[in-house]
Design a binder for these strands. Structure first.
Lengths: 349, 349
DNA sequence: TAAAAAAATCTAAACGTTTACATTTAGGAG
DNA sequence: CTCCTAAATGTAAACGTTTAGATTTTTTTA
């Protein structure tokens, strides 16, 4: 009753030795039916729950993995987490989550704590792509999986989204709708996603023989404000673009706000494609077309890779996966020439 | 190097006994400066990290609290979590988070796991307000704090939002703007929030001598679709309301969508107030006025209460806190009579 | 300089499991 | 009925800490 029953108490009550109780708890078999039932009853009567700390001390593994995200308020991460948790539960693992608030210091603390707790593995979207702080984890032989952001210093398995492909397809879609003056609102070029999404844009233009026009490239910082500014700047051009690709969710929001303020008719005067789905997307009129990242799948895959590493400690070389994002075509991106066919001139690949 | 250094190894290397090392690790003082430095160096050299499992086994407490939320994808919870984590970190505690997906079964599993791990306390927004599944936790003497949803069976400390006050103030605001035909889109009356928000609405009307009009009460289910239907139904009335109060975020979204479809001019023909801030609120034109819940504060308070319980195990009676929500006045709620003053007749309190 | 007091350090016993290995028991075979 | 084998159960030694209480060292006092 007093919440302190241990294996001894159970053993005593069932009139067996602790070894037998242990065998029942972990169903290892080799216990007579009758005895097992007696023990099970004792466990129930005493409300016995096994002490994980003691267990861990002997058997080393904890059946627990640690997950570290940089910003729990960014809806992207809870979705990934959901994927991780689902797979983890299936395999009898338990996931504990912590958020760093983009602080490398906090991240380090959390990692240390995870090691102390003896997690069997770590899934992390790091706040410090450099990665030297993962040294301790690595030295303890704890497998690591990087999600969404790669880690430079150590060779860890990595699960990314194919940013290049995503932006390529979005821009391609606009091109096939007949657009030729397609602008991009870029993310910071010193981040992987920022760079890659720009590359996809360039590649699409190139493949369809459209030339890169500096005027249509706006350098943003992934923040809402810069999206707003970007739209304003593009609007102020003599020769306005007919379509805009925005490199992330926040800039998309800023951008659409600006369009509202400028009375720049979305879907009519200006087509639009955003990277990352946003709540407001289906809310606007017209609804926004976006590139959506497979967040749940990202999480599932991350756990799967981790699980393999945990089971087979052999030094398999680093693996890197890129998941394809999905194009969600809604209404914000319309045919350049609603009534005529495009001239087709530059559309040959 | 081999990631397996223990306190023994450190002791050996520093030429002291493990007791002294332990004292240094936990800085309990009583160690000569010189010795301490030697030990610290040994720890560093060996990359020693203390084994939490072993530690827990002796000293009982884990400096860890478990947090359980029903739906990690609902932005409300990550915000609360952020508040919890911040306070926890300040006090040297570590928070582990798990999501139940609104499944009582999963919740039970997680709780068991938390007990096994020996968490010092639990903060929970339960998927099962009944609460009998918390029996085990209770029996182990582990303190529990309920957040946002109360728990019937056991007397646990509870941190709620003052739903009555929030909706009261919102409705009051609309009344003071001169509205008299104020509709409500209710949440389910078998949930605490649904009931309480309706009570606030009724109370406000009563206090200002406005009579309750059945036609203006729409029974929703907290889902987006019901908000949409609600707006439609209210629009179809011969005598339409001039203002609407929506009881939660999702119904707000549905509601506003409907208004768009109906071309029911928000802020002009129809004023609006929602419970819970939503992303789209500042995005619409006019911007939505809403009741905002102090999520961060909720989390902070929850941890604070838990911490007290952990420290002083005395059986203090159950405490219940209601935090005041905040009115965010934006633009969706306008004066009923922009040019004339309201007739004032029914406005005396 | 010796004894007393204070400070630093050490020894050893838990904590609650798991698990190799030892022992007992049950059930047949002879 | 005895012996043998296999199955069931028990014994005891870890695992890596923390922490009383014992012991040693250092400092103070006379």
């Amino acid at each position: 009753m007093e919440g302190k029953a241990n294996i001894q108490d159970v053993a005593k009550r069932a009139n067996v030795s602790i070894a037998t109780v242990s065998r029942v708890i972990n169903n290892q078999g080799g216990v007579r039916k009758q005895t097992e039932e007696r023990i099970l009853k004792a466990i129930k009567d005493l409300g016995y729950i096994r002490n994980a700390a003691a267990r861990t001390m002997k058997s080393k593994d904890t059946k627990t993995i640690g997950v570290i995200v940089p910003d729990i308020n960014n809806p992207f991460f809870p979705s990934v987490m959901a994927g991780i948790e689902q797979k983890a539960r299936e395999k009898g693992y338990f996931a504990i989550l912590s958020s760093t608030n983009e602080s490398p210091v906090v991240e380090q603390e959390i990692l240390k704590n995870f090691i102390e707790r003896g997690v069997d593995g770590v899934i992390i979207t790091t706040a410090n792509e450099n990665g030297d702080h993962l040294k301790q984890v690595h030295e303890q032989g704890i497998p690591i999986i990087a999600v969404d952001r790669s880690i430079q210093y150590y060779d860890v398995d990595t699960v990314l989204v194919d940013n290049v492909k995503g932006s390529y397809q979005a821009v391609q879609h606009m091109i096939l709708q007949g657009h030729e003056k397609i602008a991009i609102i870029c993310g910071p070029q010193n981040t992987t996603p920022g760079r890659e999404r720009f590359i996809g844009y360039k590649k699409a233009l190139e493949d369809y023989n459209l030339k890169l026009d500096e005027r249509y490239i706006f350098q943003g910082d992934f923040g809402e404000r810069s999206g707003y500014q970007g739209a304003h700047q593009l609007y102020s051009l003599e020769e306005r673009p007919t379509a805009i690709f925005s490199s992330n969710n926040l800039m998309t929001i800023g951008c659409v706000k600006a369009m509202g303020d400028l009375d720049w008719k979305l879907g009519e005067e200006i087509s639009f494609f955003g990277f990352d789905d946003v709540d407001i997307a289906t809310f606007l009129n017209p609804k926004l077309s976006v590139v959506s990242r497979p967040m749940h799948a990202l999480g599932e895959l991350a756990f799967q890779l981790l699980h393999e590493r945990i089971q087979f400690k052999d030094p398999v070389p680093k693996r890197e996966y890129k998941l394809s994002p999905e194009l969600i075509i809604r209404e914000s991106c319309r045919l350049r020439y609603p009534n005529n066919s495009p001239d087709g001139q530059s559309l040959k690949k």
